[in-house]
Design a protein around this nucleic acid. Sequence first.
RNA 1: GGUGCUGUAGUUAAGUUGGUUAUAACGCCGGCCUGUCACGCCGGAGGCCGCGGGUUCGAGUCCCGUCAGCACCGCCA
Length: 597
Amino acid sequence: MKPRTHTCGSLRAEHVGQTVTLHGWVSGLRDKKTIFVVLRDRYGTVQVTLDEKCPEDLMAIGKQLALEYTVEVQGLVRLRHAPNDKMETGAIEIEPASITILSKTKPLPFKIDSLKEKPTEEVRLKYRYLDLRQSQLQKTMRIRHKTALVVRNYLDDQGFYEIETPILNRSTPEGARDYLVPSRVHPGEWYALPQSPQIFKQILMIGGMDRYFQLCRCFRDEDLRADRQPEFTQIDIEMSFVTQDMIIELSNGMIRKVWKDVIGVDVGDIPSITYAEAIDRFGVDNPDLRFGMELFTADWQGTEFGVIGNALASGGVARGFIVKGGAEVSNSLFKTHKKKGDGDWLAFVKKYRLGGLLYGKLENGSWSGPLSKVEPELLTTIEGVEDGDLVLIGAGPANHVNTAMGRLRAHVARQRALIPEDAFAFVWVTDFPAFEHDEDNDRWVSVHHPFTQPIEEHIEWLGTERMGDILSDAYDIVCNGYEIGGGSIRIHNSEVQAQVFKALGLSEEEAKNKFGFLIDALQYGAPPHGGLAMGFDRWTMLLSGTENIRDVIAFPKTSKAQDLMADAPNTVAKEQLEELFVANTVSDEEESSSDSE
RNA sequence: GGUGCUGUAGUUAAGUUGGUUAUAACGCCGGCCUGUCACGCCGGAGGCCGCGGGUUCGAGUCCCGUCAGCACCGCCA
């Protein structure tokens, strides 16, 4: 192999007359009297032309080529007879002096960057090495790399150290399920892979590192979604002697720099709203601010209209939003069809445990639909309804109504194309409740995590009937409806920390057992500190314009957490298990049946 | 743990009310074509219709189960 002199995408008219050596894959082949070979590498494509001037032995090699062969081409850059404006290198072509086939390919499972058909994701994941050649992944890997680089440089400029924390860790059975690793030298004992480096980064602050960050892999053994993988990467940040405002300011600077440097977008100012405001205006704590259609509250105490009246009487709420010009939508969206099931919008809210969806259409001054039965003087309290509009209302328990109507708001906006393309709407959500009551187990649990600082004035409510009113010094950053980061000011006072554990029903012994080393460390001059973790994969998704997290990860797993290429997870030899003192409780029969196709 | 959609050639899809030889496009192989660029033309090979069971004279099609992919609910401090 000769050294490469140029990349395929780099050649222009100014190179005409130069002899170049290129390496790449055959991405296009037009075998006529003249053979046209399109050569592709990471940097672009260029046409290699074998015409009547070509010696016969070279034509013979040209005849052997097939798509995705890896080749070396040495030749002369010349102007084309027929330039191609659609190609960056379309002004020129290569007149080859030699072509070497570096490696051949078996028949391909799919054509790279085919315009006609896209392979299913299952096929793409199995042949990920071919999928990676496609422009989509070439682009997202570039964006991912560039984002990481900008983040590292930005944080370095701000005085941060990147410090690694352990992958093999102790299990803390709070929150998500841990991935466990058996210890060979300590029979019966296990490491856990980190769900996040939370405790270690706090200890780095106690250790005087002042400003820490890490692009770190985190692991959670939970069921997956389009935007969730079992292992994912976060930009983990912790700072000493900071306030919430300082962390938000630093984060805003980082977001602006990344969006500008990676995709050329000016983010501008990023607003903040409180959790309470987010729920009030949007029903959810990760609102999409790219469009309006905010929720209103139908506070119609005493209405004769049964569904809403009953919901309010039993302590629930009625909330909804106006769909501008929505009166023309089909009523079948709201109906239960005997055979086909529920209409789209009705079925949508039912997923969120809402019993039904009320609607009213205002046309030519008169209401139709279920809401037409509501007292007219109450209907007029809905602000901003005009002729031709549709009003949607959900009624029931507050948490169900807020979630259902908040999600429906986004669903409707998407269906009706109300979301501007290429827009980014960032927002900080602050003042989260510190604790929520777990009805199933009748106990209080942390909304964020138990090291989150409750706001000063609320600390005295710990362990009282006002637990649910305690707000925390925590904040989430949301973009386009995705939670892309979150953090908090941490408790640095070991007495407050002890009060929190107590309020959560953790005995001193249990707390010590779970978080002992942090509790100890907090007693040795802990600085006030706080930080946050940014979802690096979700950042990359937004920057790439994809809604699928697998599109921004080189080797992702399926929704059942399998790697279809590497075929992981897999069974291991009995001897391996014995060495680790692990018993396999799955019978061989079960194993083989689940393995077969 | 649950719900929905999908599974037919290497790939992407079509396949009607259950009906006899399962289609097409791309890719692959062979041939033709003076400059193509989603090249074009002619010919060819290629199928466990995801898997298992059932209903039926007959199943790609209907029913049950199962596996896989995707999306969602629960879950994800």
